[in-house]
């Protein structure tokens, strides 16, 4: 076993294997560096291709233009609210459901599991119009409407993700707790939930980023009021800035929008990368 591993290491992958990886990485880094660089420049320097000269210094006011003047902060905090509420609400509904689905035998258990997996592949175009109708009819508007919808839309994936995790851990501790006289609720809160904490972190990070970056639902459900999300808001900020060809401020707006996601990703890239894999395949 060890020998073969050693032989493999000696052979190594062909140096050619690094070429596509390095090209792809270089392209990505080039975009990021340029965007950040240009966001501190002035339109004239961007047009003449002298972005990194900064002949008139660093122009942080581009960020003020995007953040304050163009009201990006409104959209930013809206999306932050959606993401936090969707994560919390999703967990509150999904964690108990995942727990009983994995631990208790009752009629319809198997059917519910199958339905949860099935609804994950329902395209949102097939559900969004009636959801819009319900919201209008109940007069639920603005931020509350999007919060509710995002919570609901995160439930199937979150439940299935936690369900798989609950099924992979031993029931022994819970059984011991029950014998020692814990009520069902105590067993769930004090024994079962702490054991799935890593899975809850993963799915929360994943849900957070999904909602933060969501576009289609936000576009359809927020008609011109203060509830606009980050993605939809960025589109209007960019078109407004294009009137004056203020490219540096456009790039500043892009940096503001991607920064939270990149920061979270830097802290927990492994968790987030594998968090996305829980629904489609078992792995």
């Amino acid at each position: 076993m060890k020998k073969i591993h050693k032989a493999d290491t000696l052979n190594g992958p062909s140096p050619l294997a690094y070429v596509p990886l390095l090209l792809w990485t270089a392209f990505m880094v080039a975009i990021l560096v340029y965007i950040v660089g240009a966001s501190l420049s002035v339109p004239r320097d961007v047009f003449t291709g002298q972005v990194f000269k900064y002949s008139t210094g660093l122009h942080w006011e581009n960020y003020v233009t995007a953040w304050t003047t163009q009201k990006l902060y409104v959209y930013f905090f809206n999306s932050l609210i959606y993401a936090v509420v969707a994560c919390t609400g999703g967990l509150l509904i999904s964690a108990p459901a995942a727990y009983v689905l994995s631990r208790c035998k009752f009629r319809g258990n198997h059917l519910i599991k199958r339905i949860l997996i099935l609804v994950m592949s329902i395209p949102s175009i097939l559900i969004i119009l009636p959801i819009y109708g319900i919201l209008v009819k109940l007069d639920i508007r603005g931020r509350v409407a999007l919060c509710l919808v995002y919570v609901c839309l995160r439930v199937p994936y979150t439940t299935v993700f936690l369900l798989n995790f609950f099924e992979s851990i031993s029931k022994t501790y819970e059984e011991a707790a029950a014998i020692d006289g814990c009520t069902d609720m105590q067993t769930f809160l004090k024994i079962a939930l702490p054991m799935v904490r890593p899975a809850m972190t993963t799915i929360t990070l994943f849900n957070f980023l999904s909602v933060l970056n969501e576009y289609f639902v936000a576009l359809l459900l927020t008609a011109s009021d203060g509830a606009t999300s980050l993605g939809v808001g960025l589109t209007s900020v960019v078109s407004a800035l294009m009137y004056t060809s203020n490219y540096p401020a456009i790039f500043a707006a892009v940096v503001i929008v991607v920064l939270p996601s990149i920061l979270i990703y830097c802290l927990a890239s492994r968790k987030i990368m594998y968090g996305g894999m829980g629904g489609g395949i078992k792995g």
Partner: peptide, 28 residues
């Protein structure tokens, strides 16, 4: 591949666009 260097780094970099708002990358 078992002995590729920077395995996790490259995976993370290639996966990165999936965690960023498509509208933002699109505008870039």
């Amino acid at each position: 591949h078992k002995s590729i260097r920077g395995k996790h780094f490259f995976r993370a970099i290639i996966y990165l666009p999936n965690v960023i708002s498509a509208v933002a990358i699109g505008n870039a």
